[in-house]
Amino acid sequence: MQVDEVVTPGGRRVAAWLPEGSGLPGLERRSAKFVEGLARVGDVLDADGALPRATKLLFAAAVCAVKRDAGLVGHHVAAAAAAGLPREHAEGAVVGLLISRGVEPHRLLAEAVERTYGPPEGEPGAPGDADVPGAYAYFERYFGFVPDYVELLGERAGPALEGYFLMREAALAETPLPPRDMELLLCAVNAGEYQARFVTIHARGARSAGATEEQLVEAALTAMPFAGVASWLPAAQGILESREPA
């Protein structure tokens, strides 16, 4: 038996979605029971369920980009493409990740998408325009009110609020990744960053876009193998708080 081989049923299931170099054979020998537990979490990620497998693999790639693991990003983008993820959905995720977590995670995901699908095609569209009252109206529609942090930005740095509005509207509602899936992706990313408040915000957005609670749970669970079981606590809190009042 090779020391770099997995031998248990759980190890073989994990190896189907975790690439070589992950230390899985050693982990299996340290605790086959732990690996079986990881496999059962991974069974949710690596199969069609409330969400398609390809979509969940895309969410996993985004979480891995936030964790700055280029190898895992590329692995999961390629796996998502092989599972049938449309190119335009991957391109949409690249835009959404930038507004959520900034330039470096965006770069890692963008490079993986370009390696898998090729560079972006076509010409840039219209850049759009904005003003502070229009931005307030957008947030009123999205939240049902204008949050105080939006008002603060509008009062003290109006052009920045205009930019925030343009980026947010473009990323959450105007990419080829459907709004429901964009909101779910942001739930996964924020679960991976242990941010319950933002899970709540995007879980509410996902529900408004038609997501079920089963889909919210599956999306959030894509973070667990890469951010640890600790990611589930803020994810669960955010999902529970996103429920409509009784």
Rank of each mutant, 00 (worst) to 15 (best):
A211V: 01
F143G: 03
P179Y: 00
P124K: 05
G74S: 06
E123R: 06
Q2C: 07
G205D: 00
R12H: 02
V41Y: 06
A50E: 05
R168M: 10
Y194T: 08
A171F: 03
G158I: 12
P159I: 09
F143E: 00
D69S: 04
G102A: 03
L177Y: 12
L177A: 12
M1C: 08
L72A: 05
L161I: 05
A206Y: 03
I201A: 13
D46M: 03
F59L: 13
R107V: 12
V94R: 04
R101L: 03
L177M: 07
D46W: 13
Y117R: 02
E244V: 07
L108N: 07
G11A: 11
W232R: 00
G23Y: 01
D148H: 12
V7D: 05
E88H: 00
P9I: 00
A90K: 04
A80S: 03
K33N: 03
G134A: 15
E36C: 09
T116K: 04
L161T: 03
E214I: 07
V41H: 09
A173W: 10
P127C: 04
R197P: 05
H106A: 08
A196G: 01
A206S: 11
V77P: 03
R29C: 02
P133M: 13
L98N: 03
E169V: 09
N190P: 11
G158P: 15
L109A: 01
A209H: 04
A206V: 12
P25N: 13
G96S: 11
A130G: 13
F226P: 07
D131Y: 12
A230R: 15
W232P: 00
D4R: 10
L240R: 15
A236W: 07
A32M: 04
Q237Y: 06
Y136N: 10
A65N: 11
E123G: 00
G96M: 01
P86W: 04
V113C: 11
D181I: 12
S22D: 04
V103E: 06
G154C: 11
A112G: 04
G238T: 02
V73A: 13
T55S: 15
A81C: 13
A209I: 09
A78E: 14
V229K: 05
G21N: 08
D181N: 15
M1W: 08
V217N: 06
E162S: 08
P119V: 14
